[in-house]
Design a protein around this nucleic acid. Structure first.
Length: 890
RNA sequence: GGGCGAUUAGCUCAGUUGGUUAGAGCGUUGCGUUCACAUCGCAAAAGUCGGAGGUUCGAGUCCUCUAUCGCCCACCA
């Protein structure tokens, strides 16, 4: 058996094994009807992505599950891939070619797309390489990309399918428009942020009158597109002037004062300027009242010719200019500070413009019904469960999904127009319009007029319109030949692991798509982990400069340390505030594991480690330490299984940490040193290490593999091994209690040594009074343990109280412990007095509790019994302490 | 305007169905090179569990109210 290097060189080890696992095909999963499948589809990272802590956490969790289930006998499949990330990628490449003095418009669509593919070739798999660095056991032979041919086919298929069902339509609406990206966005892509703004009060003069009506607005520049002023019909202040005409300042346009219940008389002046082409509410008002829709902006948010003198100006410059002009004319009454929520582009953070345009939409209400039901019925479960409510609330208030994007990188709409007979109108939801052909392939001629002059829609689909098919399109759906077998076996998938930010974007929509196209849920569980933030609670982002780069941590501490640290500090669904020093936890633990293994390997004799544990257990009389560590291992394993099955990862990590470090290393290995050469010790040391490595492997794949290989040079990879089986018969609570007593006695002696300033190298003599025969027996049997771990040279066991001169004493587990040393009698007395006081007050509390008839009557019997027993023990301890006090005084 | 989360030791956080005297890591203090590990060992100090009520024999845990911080959703211009 070869030993480990003195120092744990994680860099070398990590480089060694990932490729080996890959070469051996350990990550590959295929249909195997003898096994149950366990499947996770990766949340496909954007091809523009680089690994951040969120990814590191997200993928570590998935990897733990995948490896755990694989070892547990499941056919474990982790489906990997990347997302083309329409707007994000287009932005990146555009920025790049701008640097080269080009623009996409100069290049043209085809050439530009070539550049993007080129870019993808070069940089698009950065994140994949980084996931490999993290140790992810993805089945790379199945890697998918949302713009691959097969996948694109699925996307187009779905579009045509939904169009035929009447669930996709084209229509004119106010949508969220990003003036910088120059595309429409869905509601989810335009999150609102609170901003400090102003409420401007503007006078609108009444026609043929000296009077005026005052309107309040946060966006004065939109007044150029006003086509009415609205008041509440019940508002007494304005009753007289409803129906009158006002002159729109700066534009000199005549517009009407209309009434509508929508207007809140308590807000502002109770009079609203109506701009139907630039505000969703005003749009609805405009529709109700048949108002004119005046668009005053170009797509880049500069004002257009409808803005007359302001044409050409940027929207915010125009705002300032308009305010100045109104002021000059005495039409600006006042300005108040005002907080309001404004939509921002989720890709470039530019302020969204509500913009009237013709776009494609998915009707969501019909899709949401089944998606609501499966969650309500518990067929899809959220962990933690509170997200259920968030999900259902969104489903309840669902709005149609704008899916067309005015960019080039993505799936181009399978929509064709006949130049001859297509005439876009202003309708909403024109499900069928002549000259519109929706088909996966380009039609030869127009079915309405028969002419062949046909053009394809310029737009592409929302990236999420492809992502929502991920759990089944990755298997090759809808191509039956490719996907049928796999889907039957692997679908629905087992669990989706993701962050809260994309519940609406992705999780909710996948559930809808799964139910609509597969007639089944896409996954059974949804585990939502927290967001990784910096230590002040801010999201980590490049612009804030507060990023802790996982790759830096990997370089400095190692992958396993990164993984174990992250998992340890992430309680279910709770955000994690991260600082670099948190990773020391994992680094130190790696170091501990390494050194413990090194010690064991250093002392292990291979011949002594062979055999079956259960048979060995039955046939051998084990020492307390041996039986104890086995019992503790299996108790830990049992709890570990439970924690993993309930997605309690921090608890799982904590259990392993506690067992390995503070039980196995601190106690068992120290005790094992006493008889390290003996068969039993050798066997147990080997078995515990070997099994613990397996249980640790999903968390720390590299270090466990390296140690495994050295421990079992012939046994192959740890990845091929099974998860340890819980041996219930080896779990022995009584025995664990015995060990607890022994530990208490040892700790008490150490404590007395420390209090009396005895140097670690100095040996002491002790007497132990154990009136209880059983206890005395245990302590006598483990005398050598006490001597070794408490540095004791001689122990006298007493059956009855004896008084000593010159001893330092204490009570532990019902035994009195006397240290025969020179000591400070005054200090000793004070300490014992203090202990007596403490124990007396505890006894009092317990006596009162047990005198309480309500407690006796209503508390369950075992609880009362436990209290009684505890009281008896306390009383015995008190008696001993008093005896000790007496002894000391003498 | 709704919804959610957090509030526990100096710091960062655990605490599953209510059950002895509330835990960990880091930090602090004291001692320590007994050769697996100083990325270590041994020991210690440290908390009226945000506040107020309530339910209960019993509350960090359940209920109500409340304070502070944070997040999400929502068309008050």
């Amino acid at each position: 058996m070869e030993n480990l290097t003195t120092k744990y060189n994680f860099e070398e080890i990590e480089a060694k094994y990932y490729n080996l696992w890959l070469k051996q095909g350990y990550f590959h999963a295929t249909k195997d009807t003898d096994k149950k499948p366990f499947v996770i589809v990766i949340p496909p990272p954007n091809i523009t992505g680089i690994l951040h802590m969120g990814h590191a956490l997200n993928n570590t969790i998935q990897d733990i599950l995948i490896r755990y289930k694989k070892m547990s006998g499941f056919e474990s499949l982790w489906m990997p891939g990347t997302d083309h990330a329409g707007i994000a990628t287009q932005n990146v490449v555009e920025r790049k070619i701008t640097g080269d003095g080009l623009s996409r418009h100069v290049l043209g669509r085809e050439k530009f797309l070539e550049k993007v593919w080129q870019w993808r070739q070069e940089y698009g798999s950065t994140i994949i390489r980084q996931l490999k660095r993290l140790g992810c056991a993805c089945d790379w032979s199945r890697e998918r990309f949302t713009l691959d041919a097969g996948y694109s086919n699925a996307v187009l298929d779905v579009f045509v399918n939904l169009y035929k069902k009447g669930l996709i339509y084209q229509g004119n609406y106010i949508i969220n428009w990003c003036p910088r990206c120059q595309t429409a966005l869905s509601n989810e892509e335009a999150p609102h942020k609170d901003m400090d703004g102003f409420l401007y009060y503007i006078r609108y003069p009444l026609k043929d009158s000296n009077e005026h009506i005052v309107v309040a607005t946060t966006r004065p520049e939109t007044m150029l597109g006003d086509t009415a002023v609205a008041v509440n019909p019940k508002d007494k202040r304005y009753k007289k002037i409803i129906g009158k005409t006002v002159i729109l300042p700066l534009m000199n346009r005549q517009i009407l004062i209309i009434k509508d219940d929508f207007v809140d008389p308590r807000f502002g002046t109770g009079a609203v300027k109506v701009t139907p082409a630039h505000d969703p509410n005003d749009y609805a008002l405009g529709k109700r009242h048949g108002l004119e829709f005046v668009n005053i902006m170009h797509p880049d948010a500069t004002l257009n010719e409808n803005a007359l003198d302001y044409a050409g100006q940027d929207r915010f410059k125009a705002r300032a200019a308009i305010i100045e002009d109104l002021k000059e004319r005495g039409l600006l009454l006042k300005v108040e500070a005002h907080k309001y929520a404004v939509g921002h582009c989720y890709r470039c953070h530019t302020i969204i413009e509500p913009y009237l345009s013709r776009q494609w939409f998915v009707k969501m209400k019909p899709l949401s019904l089944a998606a609501k039901k499966v969650v309500k019925d518990g067929k899809v479960k959220f962990y933690p469960s509170r997200w259920t409510k968030v999900y259902l609330n969104w489903m309840e208030n669902i709005q149609d999904w704008c899916i067309s994007r005015q960019i080039w990188w993505g799936h181009r709409l399978p929509v064709y127009y006949c130049k001859n007979c297509y005439k876009p109108d202003n309708t909403e939801e024109d499900v069928r319009q002549s000259g519109v052909i929706v088909a996966k392939t380009r039609p030869a001629r127009c079915p309405d007029c028969g002419k062949a002059d046909i053009v394809q829609d310029e737009d592409v689909l929302d990236t999420w319109f492809s992502s929502w098919l991920w759990p089944f399109a990755t298997f090759g759906w809808p191509d039956k030949k490719v996907s049928e077998e796999d889907l039957k076996y692997f679908y629905p998938t087992s669990v989706l692991v993701t962050a809260q930010e994309i519940i609406f974007f992705w999780v909710a929509r996948m559930i809808m798509a799964g139910l609509e196209f597969m007639q089944d849920i896409p996954f059974k569980d949804v585990y939502i982990h927290g967001t990784v933030r910096d230590k002040t609670g801010k999201k980590m982002s490049k612009s804030l400069g507060n990023i802790i780069d996982p790759l830096d941590i990997i370089k400095e501490y190692g992958t396993d340390a990164l993984r174990f640290s992250l998992i340890s500090i992430t309680a279910m669904g709770q955000d994690v505030y991260l600082a670099k020093d948190k990773f020391e936890l994992g680094r130190n633990f790696s170091n501990k594991i390494w050194n413990a293994a090194r010690f064991i390997l250093m002392n292990l004799d291979t011949k002594q480690t062979e055999g079956d544990l259960c048979i060995f257990y039955k046939q051998t009389k084990l020492s307390l330490a041996d039986a104890w560590v086995l019992s503790r291992f299996y108790s830990t394993l049992k709890a570990l299984n439970q924690a993993l099955n309930n997605y309690r990862f921090n608890e799982a990590a904590g259990l392993l940490y506690e067992f390995f470090w503070h039980e196995f290393c601190d106690w068992y290995i120290e005790l094992a040193k006493l008889n390290i050469k003996e068969r039993n010790t050798q066997f147990v040391l080997y078995k515990i290490l070997e099994k613990t490595l397996r249980a640790l492997h999903p968390f720390m794949p590299f270090i466990t593999e390296e140690i495994w290989q050295k421990l079992n040079p012939e046994a192959g990879s740890i990845m091929q091994k099974t998860w340890p089986h819980v041996q219930e018969n080896l779990i022995d609570r009584v025995l664990e209690k015995k060990m607890t007593m022994l530990k208490e006695v040892i700790i008490t002696i150490r404590n007395l040594r420390s209090k009396n300033n005895i140097k670690p190298k100095d040996m002491v003599e002790v007497s132990i009074l154990a009136e209880d025969k059983k206890k005395r027996g245990i302590l006598k049997d483990t005398q050598s343990y006490i001597e070794k771990l408490a540095r004791v040279s001689k122990i006298a066991f007493l059956e009855v109280p004896v008084s000593f001169d010159g001893v330092s004493c204490d009570v532990a587990s019902g035994c009195s412990i006397y240290l025969h040393i020179n000591f400070d009698a005054a200090a000793e007395n004070e300490r014992i007095e203090h202990e007596i006081n403490q124990i007396t007050s505890n006894i009092k509390r317990k006596e009162e509790l047990l005198k309480n008839s309500a407690f006796i009557a209503k508390a369950p019997v075992p609880v009362v019994e436990k209290e009684n027993k505890a009281l008896a023990e306390l009383k015995a301890d008190l008696k001993k302490l008093e005896a000790i006090k007496y002894a000391v005084k003498k």
